[in-house]
Each structure stands twice: as C-alpha cells, then as structure tokens.
C-alpha cells in the first residue's frame, strides 16, 4: 500500500514535470514561445526562436546549445547596419540578469541549427538543450512551423 502511494506520487511528479515547458535543469529558467521554421531538406541551416526568462535572484549565462537535430547548434546574432546590409555572427555567451529575459526573435538573436541531421518537418517538434555556465541544462521542446511562419502563432 505504501509502495503504491509512492509509485503514484512518482507518476504524478513526472506528469507535472512534463506538463510545464521546461523539462529539466535550472529551476529559475522559464522558456516561452519557442518555435522554428521547417527546412527544405538538410543542406540549409535552420533557425529557432524563443524567450528565455531568468526568474531567479542571480544572473545566469547561456553558453551554448545541444540537440540531436543539428551537429552545430549555435546562438547567432543578425544585425543590419546603416547601409541596410544584414550580417550574422555567433553571439557568444549570453548573460541574462536576475529577473531579466532575452528574446530570440527574427532579425536578432536566433538559435542557428547548422548541419541538420534530418529535415525539419512542419508539424513535428524537436528537443533542444540550453546549456548554462554552471553546467546545468534546460531541455525544451521546439515546435516546427511552416517555412513562412512569422512567429510562435505561425
């Protein structure tokens, strides 16, 4: 009887932890509105977007990404200069202040998914780990929307 209660408790805890968008890792990190665009085949890099909130009292530093979808996932920054020329470069480490947030959105920061291991198909999703400087990771599920999607709503 005692075991049964324990088992159902474990199941309950697991069910709750799967229901929230953040699946594992740093408790103070909340990831919202994650989305990505479908790819044409595997030769072109993909991009994913999201808002990362730090609800804790200490700054956190996002150092990298990990996913089995792409061999080289990296956070990149798009910038457009005064002459209207857009360019992209690795963004390096990203510090998120206590209570602050960072938006990865079109035309700014984005998770660049280089060397796709499989095509990104509309309607599917993939798992992406955000890696922080303390070694902790946050795993999120990123839905794949259409190629012409403009935001998390499609």
């Amino acid at each position: 009887m005692k075991n049964m209660i324990k088992n159902s408790l474990v199941t309950l805890v697991m069910a709750i932890s799967f229901a929230v968008p953040v699946l594992a890792g740093s408790e103070d990190v909340v990831v919202e509105d994650a989305w990505s665009r479908a790819s044409i085949g595997m030769s072109r890099p993909g991009a994913a977007y999201m808002t990362i909130r730090n609800t804790g009292d200490e700054a956190i530093i996002l150092t990298g990404l990990r996913t089995d979808l792409a061999m080289m996932p990296e956070i990149h920054q798009t910038s457009t200069n005064a002459e209207g020329v857009s360019s992209m470069a690795p963004a390096g480490e990203i510090k998120i202040a206590a209570g602050g947030e960072v938006a990865l959105e079109p035309g700014g920061l984005h998770a660049m998914l280089m060397r796709l291991q499989r095509p990104m198909t509309e309607g599917e999703s993939f798992l992406l780990n955000l890696v922080f400087s303390d070694g902790s990771e946050v795993m999120i599920e990123v839905p794949i929307l259409g190629i012409a999607a403009r935001g998390p709503e499609g």
Partner: peptide, 8 residues
C-alpha cells in the same frame, strides 16, 4: 541558405 533574414 539564409536562415533568418530571408525567410523573415
């Protein structure tokens, strides 16, 4: 092959 600016 442009992942961000062009599709946007």
């Amino acid at each position: 092959h442009c992942p961000d600016v062009c599709p946007t």
